[in-house]
């Protein structure tokens, strides 16, 4: 493999990892801080992709579609937490899994009814539809760099919110002692609603960003869900920083294994998870 091909694969791996991070960060927060196993998290990614498809068809502009999609996702996230998820906090994991699995089926059925079962593609906006030439024959698409940049900015913003703001302190405090947070006059229910809506929106946003390169298809949330649980387990449940490191690791391992060991590509991330768990059963990092 020459250097340019290596660079291209490296960028692909990072871009995939950063996108995974957007989905997995919400999953790890909802699991680690709110104690909810949310199987429907992959569906949020799917919903985002379909929102991007439907809204960009409607408005004719992907950026407008994404802006509208973000608002809609946030509202959907708040309604979902208020209507269903808030009833799960005091219940055990089995009941959480049952309800959120039910949500997957409902979301897939709704998708089928509303948009149909066809595979759709979305055009990359003209302004980003270029490639940077690397050699005479190889080039790298600007849109993928755009995705990576947006993800990095969001990761930075998330770090800032969680580590530097009072809201972030409340979120972290809630993970260690919910009752005490309430006794300090803080509405923990509202904090959780925000965390859930944030997780929903990040996952949906990842789906919107990915739609032009991955296309939009039924069941697209399921694959993401499984990989994101691997990210959460490797990174350490509840650790956003861990999710970032694990997502990048998985992005790179997955991308390079497809190049070097195509026959093993389907299982390398699971092998990685098994190795990490043997070495550190609690994951790479502690809770945020």
């Amino acid at each position: 493999m020459d250097l340019v091909t290596f660079l291209i694969q490296l960028l692909n791996g990072l871009q995939y990892g950063l996108l995974l991070f957007l989905v997995a960060s919400g999953l790890t927060l909802i699991f680690g801080i709110m104690g909810i196993i949310n199987l429907a998290h992959g569906s949020f990614y799917m919903i985002g992709a379909y929102l991007a498809f439907s809204l960009s068809t409607l408005t004719g502009n992907l950026f407008t579609a994404i802006l509208l999609g973000i608002v809609l996702s946030a509202v959907l996230g708040i309604i979902l937490e208020w209507l269903l998820i808030s009833r799960l906090y005091h219940r055990d994991h089995l009941e959480q899994v049952l309800l959120t699995y039910g949500l997957i089926l409902i979301f897939e059925a709704l998708r089928s009814i509303l948009v149909g079962d066809d595979v759709h593609s979305i055009a990359i906006p003209a302004i980003l539809n270029h490639s940077i030439p690397l050699t005479d024959t190889l080039s790298y698409p600007v849109y993928r760099i755009f995705i990576s940049m947006v993800c990095l900015i969001l990761a930075g913003l998330m770090y800032g919110v969680i580590q530097r703001t009072r809201l972030g302190m409340m979120i972290r405090a809630g993970a260690s002692n919910r009752e005490m947070v309430q006794s300090l006059g803080i509405n923990i229910q509202l904090v959780y609603r925000l965390v859930f809506a944030m997780g929903f929106t990040l996952a949906a946003f990842a789906g919107m960003l990915a739609a032009p390169i991955s296309s939009v298809y039924p069941g697209m949330g399921d694959q993401v869900l499984i990989i994101c649980f691997v990210v959460v387990v490797i990174g350490g449940i509840g650790s956003v920083w861990g999710a970032l490191v694990a997502a990048l690791l998985i992005g790179l391992v997955d991308t390079f294994s497809k190049v070097f060991f195509p026959e093993l590509a389907g299982i390398t991330v699971y092998l990685l998870m098994a190795m990490v768990l043997l070495w550190r059963p609690e994951g790479l990092f502690r809770m945020t």
């Binding site: 302190m169 972290r172 405090a173 993970a175 260690s176 002692n177 009752e179 005490m180 309430q182 006794s183 300090l184 006059g185 803080i186 509405n187 923990i188 229910q189 502690r286 809770m287 945020t288």
Partner: peptide, 28 residues
């Protein structure tokens, strides 16, 4: 809800303390 009672000017120092161990002293 407990937070509404607390906002009426009632503070609680529970048995066994109840600091947030994962936050710094300043953040607590």
């Amino acid at each position: 809800a407990p937070h509404l009672i607390a906002r009426q000017g009632i503070a609680y120092v529970p048995e066994g303390r109840g600091i947030f161990p994962n936050l710094s002293v300043r953040e607590n």
